[in-house]
Write a protein that binds this DNA or RNA. Structure first.
Lengths: 362, 362
DNA sequence: TTGTAAGCGTTATCAT
DNA sequence: ATGATAACGCTTACAA
C-alpha cells in the first residue's frame, strides 16, 4: 500500500553556508493560522493595515504563537528592506580604521542600514573578489578605506570596482585616500596628509631645526607617499635642500622604527629632529633614542602622525598630527546612504604640539 | 491608436533604503541574449554545467556584455548564498574589540561568510532591535561582545535573543563574557578576567606589597565585576583583609582615572601598589602619580589589564595582563560558522611583567 | 546537454 | 478591509 500525503512539503535542501531554509514560520503559516490571506497578514505585520479589524488581532496572535520572523531577504527582493553599507580595509585593528568605521557606522545604522566590515589583508585579488561579493549582495555603497597603491594599475582596478558597483546601483567611496582625478564618479573623503606633515616640519623649523630626518615606509602607497611629500614641502618652505640621506625606511611597527633609528642615528649624529610617518613609528624612534642615551627633545625632537590613544601619555608626550578620522567616516557614510557628493573633500588636520619637540639647542 | 508593447516591463518601484530593483541585468536577460533557458544560464554561470557546449560560451559572453551580477539575495532565498556573521558590541573603537573582531572576521570570511559589525552604544533597546533586525536578515550567528549587565534581567534578555535567533537557525555566542549557567544553549568564549587580576595581585604580594588598591568602574557589568573579584581573590590568597576604602571608582578614561587617583592618594599615602581594571585607567593612574612626584615603581607599583598597544612603550613600561583577544574572536567565529560547541571556554591570560612594578621599598 | 515548471517568502496591484 | 494573483530573480528536480 502506498500512502500519499497531499500537503507533504518537499524535502528541504541544506546547503551551508547558505541561509537555512524552511527553518521558521513563514507569512503563509501565519496567514493560515489566522485564517486570512497572505496579503492581509503582510499588511498587518508591516503596520500598514488601515483600521484594526478582528483579523488584525488574530494575525498578531498567530505571528506571536508561531514565533514569526519576517524574512528580510525576501523583502529585499521586493525592493523594500535593508541594504548594507560595506567598509573594506586592509586590516581591522588600528585606531585610525576603527575610528573611521565608527563614524561611518553611526550614520549607516541611523539610516537603517546594516554595516559590513571586510578586510583584504592587503591582497588586491581578495579586494576584487570582495567587491564582487558585495555587489552580489546588493550593498548600497562600498567604503574603500586607507592607503592604496598610487599606480595607474590601481586606478584601472578602482574603475572596475566602481563599474561593478554601479551596475547594482551602488557607489564606491574612497576614505582617507585622495580622489582619482580621472575618475570623478569615485567619491573621495580624505584628510590632509601632506599638509599635516608639512606643518610638523614648519613647527620644527620655527624651533630652529635645519637637519630634519623623515622616517617612513617610502613605498608607492598613497598615504606614505603623501606624507613624504609633506616633508619635502616643509623643507622647501624653509629653503632647506632635500637630502635623500636623511630619509629612513621603516616598516610600520615600533620595533622596525627603533632598529632603523639605531642604524641611522649613528651615521647621522648631526640630525636634530625626526618626522615620522606614523605615531607607531614615532614611538619606536623615541624608544631607540632613549636607549641610545639621546634626550628628547633636548637633543632630538620627534614628530608623529595620527594622534593615537596614549601617545599623549608617553614620556615625553608626543607632538603629532591629529586627523579627523571619525568625521571622515561620517562624511563617507553620509554619501553612502544617499547624500549628495559634490566633489572630493580633504579635511584639515591639526598639529598637536606636546613634549617631544623643543628648540634646537644652541 | 493605442500601442501595446507586449513585453514592456511594469514600472519599477523605488523604495530607499531598500535594494534598488530593476537596476541591472537579470539571469533572464542573459538567457534571452544567449538564446538559452534560464536554467542553462544558471548552470553555466554557477560553474556547474557539465561539459562546455556552444551555449556555454554564449552564456558567458552574454553575461559579460550585459554586465550581469548575480543577485545574492535571490540566491539566498533558495538556500544557497552567503550568510552573514554579526558582531555586536557597545562600541567599535578600542583595541580589545577590534582584535576580537579581527579574529572572528578571519574565520568568517575564510568560510565564505560576510561579517557585519553593529554597535549599540550601550543601549539595551538598540541591542534588542539589532538582534531582531539581524534575525530578519537571516544571519548565521550573532557574536555578542564584551561586558553586559550581570543581572537576571539581562539573562532574560539574552534568552530572548537566543530564542529569536534560534527561530531562524542562528546561534548566539557571548565573547569575553562568562557563560550563563541557566542558559547552556547560549555559547560563550571568555577569557580569565578574574585569574588575570588575581595573578597581578599575586605578583605584587610576591614583591612584598600589602597595601594594594584597586581602581575600577565598580558597576554591575560583568567585566568590571570579574576583575574586581580577581582582586579580592588575590588578597584572600595572601591573607590580606579586603578593605573597601582601598577601592577607587573611576570611569574608563585615563583622565578619569588620573583625577580619581589624585584624590585617593592624598587620603591613602600608605598604599604601595595599585591594580587597575584596564590599561587605559592604569595610564591615567601613572600620569597622576608622576605629576604628584610619586615614583613608579619605587614608591608605588601599577598593574594594568589588556596589554594594549603602546603600554610597553610608556615610561615606565606597564606591567599588565595580556588576554588572547584574537583567539577569543577566532573560537567564537568557528562556532559561528557551524563548528561544534562543547561548553563554555575560558581562555587563559598571561601576566606581562614590565617596569611599572617593583619591590616594595623597605 | 538542455528546457519546463515549480518553488523560495515577500509585497503590490486591483478587484471585490 | 480583504483576497486572488502576479511579480521579484534565482535554483533545481524532472523530463526530454
Amino acid at each position: 500500500m502506498t500512502t500519499t500525503i497531499a500537503d507533504e512539503p518537499p524535502a528541504r535542501r541544506n546547503a551551508t553556508p547558505g541561509p537555512e531554509r524552511g527553518g521558521g514560520a513563514t507569512l503563509a503559516d501565519v496567514a493560515r493560522l489566522a485564517d486570512v490571506s497572505r496579503a492581509t497578514a503582510s499588511r498587518v505585520l508591516a503596520g500598514r493595515a488601515a483600521g484594526k479589524s478582528a483579523s488584525h488581532a488574530r494575525v498578531l496572535a498567530a505571528a506571536e504563537e508561531l514565533g514569526y520572523v519576517v524574512n528580510g531577504l525576501a523583502r529585499s527582493m521586493m525592493g523594500v528592506g535593508r541594504r548594507s553599507i560595506a567598509f573594506v580595509s586592509s586590516i581591522m585593528v588600528g585606531p585610525t580604521f576603527a575610528t573611521m568605521a565608527g563614524g561611518a557606522e553611526d550614520i549607516a545604522t541611523a539610516k537603517g542600514h546594516l554595516f559590513t566590515m571586510c578586510t583584504t589583508g592587503g591582497d588586491l585579488d581578495r579586494e576584487a573578489a570582495l567587491i564582487e561579493t558585495l555587489s552580489e549582495q546588493r550593498v548600497a555603497a562600498v567604503l574603500l578605506v586607507g592607503s592604496t597603491p598610487a599606480t595607474e594599475e590601481f586606478e584601472r582596478r578602482a574603475q572596475g570596482y566602481s563599474d561593478t558597483l554601479a551596475r547594482v546601483g551602488a557607489r564606491l567611496i574612497l576614505c582617507g585616500r585622495a580622489a582619482l582625478p580621472e575618475h570623478p564618479q569615485i567619491a573621495s573623503i580624505d584628510y590632509d596628509h601632506r599638509g599635516g606633515v608639512r606643518s610638523g616640519v614648519e613647527h620644527l623649523v620655527g624651533l630652529g631645526h635645519r637637519r630634519i630626518a623623515f622616517v617612513g615606509s617610502l613605498d608607492d602607497m598613497t598615504t606614505p607617499h603623501q606624507r613624504f611629500l609633506g616633508y619635502q614641502d616643509g623643507l622647501a618652505d624653509a629653503g632647506i635642500e632635500f637630502d635623500a640621506d636623511l630619509t629612513v625606511q621603516s616598516g610600520n611597527s615600533s620595533d622596525d622604527a627603533a632598529s632603523a633609528t639605531v642604524a641611522f642615528i649613528e651615521r647621522h649624529p648631526e640630525v636634530t629632529a625626526m618626522v615620522c610617518q606614523t605615531d607607531v613609528m614615532a614611538v619606536g624612534v623615541c624608544r631607540a633614542l632613549h636607549d641610545a642615551g639621546i634626550a628628547i627633545p633636548a637633543q632630538i625632537s620627534v614628530v608623529g602622525f595620527d594622534d593615537m590613544q596614549l601617545v599623549a601619555d608617553l614620556t615625553p608626550s608626543l607632538t603629532t598630527v591629529r586627523a579627523p578620522f571619525h568625521r571622515v567616516g561620517e562624511l563617507a557614510g553620509r554619501i553612502a546612504v544617499g547624500g549628495v557628493y559634490d566633489g572630493p573633500a580633504v579635511l584639515p588636520v591639526e598639529l598637536i604640539v606636546r613634549g617631544s619637540t623643543g628648540p634646537v639647542r644652541a
